[in-house]
Design a protein around this nucleic acid. Structure first.
Lengths: 119, 119
DNA sequence: GCGCGTGCTTCGGTTTCCGAAGCAGCGACC
DNA sequence: GGTCGCTGCTTCGGAAACCGAAGCACGCGC
């Protein structure tokens, strides 16, 4: 498990040797399902299988990897009862990402009216 | 080119049949280098090769795919001189994501002091 | 013409992801 | 005690995504 190194600020990550914090974040969150898992956990803590179901049945192996990464990055934690939840740090990230929801709605509005010109 | 369908609000995407806009966004941005490319373009418009270099030498084939996706999603566009830039919509997304930078710095501060307990 | 930089393409090899199956542990119920 | 169902988690073969290096066509300066 944990095959590849987990991005952390101050360390070289994929696509950036600078170690700039935001680059590490971009790497961490750019992995498949990472953003989604964080988003779901921000809504409310859940157990592994519930989380998997709410993420549209992600493959359990990948979800496990992402969760390990989030935990290693101190964004998430596992409670004694097994449920996953965000740490304070993770919740703050969730808050920083919150505007995404509002933007997405504007995006939907901007795209739908005349975008029947899709293939 | 454009092998897989491009996420759009109102359509089923990976991991969500609901068509909720934010899910489409999460899918689009959860692809490798998508977030990073957007972030770089938000700083300033650039040509393909410059963008590639600034993204830490992403493979050109993947960068091309991500750019096509961003363009299809109306987040980016290609100017007459060939340079890529964000559309108004894309710039708004960039603005919505801006808090990420501040958060990442806090993340770095929270992690560095005593996290010598890394493997 | 020639060199150089551009946007972009191709392709073989590697990594990542997926999906289905299965395991061990635990509480509920009989 | 037994087995049922649910849990967190693991394994593994095949599929898809990604990488990296090379190369093509075009435009521009020389």
């Amino acid at each position: 498990m944990a095959k590849r190194s987990i991005p952390r600020p101050g360390r070289a990550v994929r696509g950036s040797r600078s170690g700039r914090p935001v680059m590490a974040a971009l790497d961490l969150l750019g992995r498949r399902w990472a953003l989604r898992a964080l988003w779901e956990l921000a809504r409310e803590p859940r157990g592994f299988r519930a989380l998997q179901a709410d993420c549209g049945d992600v493959s359990s192996s990948v979800l496990r990897e992402r969760l390990l990464e989030l935990v290693a990055a101190r964004l998430a934690q596992q409670d004694e009862d097994g449920r996953y939840s965000l740490t304070l740090l993770g919740a703050e990230l969730g808050a920083a990402l919150a505007p995404l929801d509002g933007w997405a709605k504007r995006w939907a509005r901007a795209l739908s009216p005349r975008s029947d010109t899709e293939k």
